[in-house]
Design a protein around this nucleic acid. Structure first.
Lengths: 121, 121
DNA sequence: TATTGAAGTTTCCATTCGGTAACCTGGAGT
DNA sequence: ACTCCAGGTTACCGAATGGAAACTTCAATA
């Protein structure tokens, strides 16, 4: 006897899916690490490189640009010499911190198989 | 000509980071959608395919196997004919739900540029 | 006898992603 | 005069990822 497909209890898909949309942001390599680094205050580009040693300048730039475009981080050029650039979390970015905190918490409890990794968190 | 610093060939065993470790789990394509689908109760393979239309069987299998290996989901074969397989969240898996909920919440508020999307969430 | 259904598996392929290394700019310090 | 520094950019490349489509197994139906 063929099984009946049961109705899914969970509320139905909004056409555009915030889940996938948000994952598109925090899914990139080192993205969460960057947000995590910024949670305690502004950091400069080179400081972030120290916080997250394995990240390459190319990728770090990419991530910061994306986060800026999404309104998650703020980019401010300081008139030092040579000019330095300070990144910080926006209000929206700060809202991401608890979510990432939750992720970190569970990270501690996982049977960590492969894909080991580096840096802060 | 000055000698160049050679790259260290041996892949260094980096100190593992719970943040990156957890992202390794939920980072895969459709992973969060699967967990999201299971949050309201067990689902069979084919039901999940309906919940998340764009996922291919290959990838869905891969994700479920990974989640099972990590202790996030449970896999139970039911003696129906043909045999069916029911997936459900473990206790650990359930703990991920609030984190994903937080992500979803923020997903709503993001300036969603590209990466429009499909399915539940 | 042929068909269906569940739950995958397998092969092949295009694209994406991230890493490496080298290079750039303009002012300041020595 | 030259080098350093911050904050990138650019070109090149291999690995990994995910999608598509076809195939499999076994029992129960039609």
């Amino acid at each position: 006897m063929p099984l009946k497909v049961r109705r899914n209890q969970s509320p139905q898909p909004p056409p555009s899916c915030p889940l996938t949309e948000c994952m598109a942001i925090i899914g990139g390599a080192w993205t969460v690490n960057v947000i995590w680094s910024l949670r305690a205050g502004p950091r400069r580009f080179s400081e972030l490189r120290i916080d997250i040693p394995p990240v390459s300048p190319k990728v770090l730039t990419a991530r910061l640009r994306e986060l800026e475009a999404r309104g998650v981080v703020n980019r401010e050029v300081k008139p030092t010499s040579p000019p330095s650039v300070e990144y910080s979390l926006t209000a929206l970015g700060s809202e991401l911190v608890p979510a990432i905190e939750a992720i970190v918490t569970i990270g501690h409890r996982l049977k960590g198989e492969p894909g080991v990794s580096v840096s802060n968190g």
